[in-house]
Design a protein around this nucleic acid. Structure first.
Length: 506
DNA sequence: GGACGGTGAAACTTCAGGTTGCCTC
DNA sequence: GAAGTTTCACCGTCC
């Protein structure tokens, strides 16, 4: 038995609770599972919530359910919100004794435990291999120990693999000072967005006031070199002008300073620039979407639009292309090449890898709008339910933004295509089900059942007799649906069941 | 003799997280 | 860099 397992069991014996921080999701799940096999608790009542969080229980859901039954859970961003809520609530009420988690639970949420166990203070960090995590993060994790309302103290235990590491951990984390906080404003996407929004809202009217404004920010305070900073802002401004989101007029603005005409030229957001700002889009993405949309012709389709949104900064991190998937992604790229709305970068371009990822992400969305469920997506693309939801939400936002921009540009065909796609993404359905989705209480599953039983549009709903509709949808919903198409059926006939209709699984 | 099944070591892969917009029954 | 996962060779058992 591992040290971690012993500590976990000992915590349970003391009738206390522990959070175990581990460096990866796989490790969170595995550790939780191992501990769950060692406990003797039994909570069957949570099974349903865990398994029914997705339309079909995935491997992950089943694994979580097995653990929670034994009073142990794993927690990471791949879980569905409902599952995360359940875990947090049941930990608070004391039914779940141990949570093995990634840094999800380190910050933000108040979820104190008697004991915090940190499996490792090193984490994989791209190029550098394993690296120490920030001291700030250690403090966040350790700070979860000790419930102020119940405990006089808490324990934060860190596992060291040998004496040398023990020394280093003590020096670095226990005695160490947390890192300074740096402004995130300096990142270009953020800066672009803020400059545009300040111009759009009229807070900044010319270059002079822009510089005065930014000089007062925390970023400038840290950065100190104002000349360099002004340089960056000039660059931002000319980009925004180049992209036609901002117009810079030659005449002097409201605040005339005669000696420097250049700094007092009035800056204004264009109509499209104003909308971009309202949509909270990174101007770079907005420009990219606008350019893509001009290439949207009759020969393009939903794949084209899905790829358009998959290739944005907002959609990142994209789905990773695994070694075994490489050929498949390449094949799909070749197959769908004609559908793309932007040029493929050269294979030597540093961005090429991201481009391959954007293709895989598009394939996932495409599978989703063709009615493949969470379980299929997880098995096929390695995307977990929690991430599916996040991606769908981002997609919905970007499609909405694209629709709004297309409206202003009067790209009527694009507006139509994007609007349809947005509903399909939201519901995960093929186009043929869209009519049925207009009915309240009818989602992807029920609509598909109706369709496979021959009820393909609202007319069919009217024609269908209430008994068979009831067999497809259940009596209550069937009556409600009938009502929605104008037939008020308050009384469902009894005893008219003739036999089960074949209800195909989609 | 051959198919199947279990086991363990070696080879191979992969590796955290979460904010934005808008509308509406 | 380390842990988790998959693959594969090896061995024993059963038919």
């Amino acid at each position: 038995m591992d040290t971690i397992h012993k500590l976990a069991l000992e915590t349970i014996q003391k009738n206390k609770q522990a959070l175990i921080f581990v460096p990866s999701r796989a490790s969170a799940e595995k550790t939780a599972e191992e501990i769950s096999l060692l406990t003797h608790m039994n909570y069957p009542e949570f099974e349903e919530t865990v398994l029914k969080a997705a339309s079909t229980p995935t491997k992950q859901c089943k694994r979580l359910s097995r653990c929670i039954k034994k009073g142990v859970a794993f927690h990471h961003a791949g879980l569905l919100q409902k599952q995360k809520d359940l875990i947090e609530d049941e930990f608070r009420s004391g039914n779940i004794k141990i949570i093995c988690c990634t840094p999800t639970l380190a910050a933000g949420m108040s979820l104190p435990a008697f004991r915090v166990i940190i499996k490792s203070l090193k984490r994989y960090s791209g190029k550098w291999g394993m690296d120490w995590i920030p001291i700030l993060e250690y403090m966040q994790m350790a700070g979860r120990a000790g419930r102020p309302e119940y405990e006089a103290f808490g324990e934060a235990i860190t596992i060291a693999k040998d004496d040398i590491e023990k020394e280093e951990i003590y020096e670095r984390y226990v005695l160490g000072e947390p890192e300074d906080i740096y402004s995130k404003l300096a990142v270009e996407p953020v800066l672009r967005t803020y400059v545009l929004s300040l111009i759009s809202s009229g807070i900044i009217r010319n270059e002079e006031s822009m510089k005065t404004f930014f000089a007062k920010t925390f970023w400038a305070h840290q950065f100190k070199d104002m000349a360099k900073l002004e340089n960056i802002m000039d660059k931002m401004l000319s980009l925004l002008e180049k992209w036609k989101f901002v117009s810079i007029e030659g005449n002097a603005g409201d605040f005339v300073i005669a000696h420097d005409m250049n700094r007092t030229r009035t800056t204004r957001a264009t109509q499209i620039g104003k909308r971009v700002s309202e949509l909270y889009l990174d101007p770079l993405t907005a420009r990219y979407i606008l350019d893509c949309m001009t290439n949207f012709t009759e020969s393009k389709n939903t794949f084209s639009l899905l790829h358009m949104i998959s290739n944005t900064l907002e959609m990142r991190p994209l789905l990773r292309v695994k070694v075994k998937e490489h050929d498949m992604v390449q094949d799909e790229l070749v197959k769908n090449y004609e559908l793309l709305l932007q040029e493929e970068p050269s294979a030597f371009d540093p961005e090429y890898n991201e481009f391959c990822k954007s293709i895989k992400t598009t394939l996932f969305f495409d599978a989703w709008i063709n009615e493949n469920d969470e379980d299929y997506c997880m098995e096929t693309f390695g995307i977990r339910p929690g991430e599916i939801r996040m991606k769908l939400e981002t997609a919905d936002w970007l499609l909405y933004a694209a629709e709004e921009l297309a409206k202003i540009m009067e790209y009527r065909e694009v507006v139509k295509a994007v609007r349809t796609l947005r509903v399909r993404v939201k519901n995960g359905v093929k186009e043929e089900l869209l009519v049925l989705l207009k009915l309240k209480n009818i989602g992807r599953v029920r609509a598909r059942r109706m369709y496979s039983n021959g009820i393909k549009n609202l007319g069919d709903v009217k024609k269908a007799d209430i008994t068979s509709l009831g067999q497809i949808l259940g009596k209550t919903i069937a009556a409600d649906v009938k009502k929605q198409v104008g037939e008020d059926i308050t009384k469902v006939p009894k005893g008219t069941r003739k036999g089960q209709l074949s209800i195909e699984k989609y």
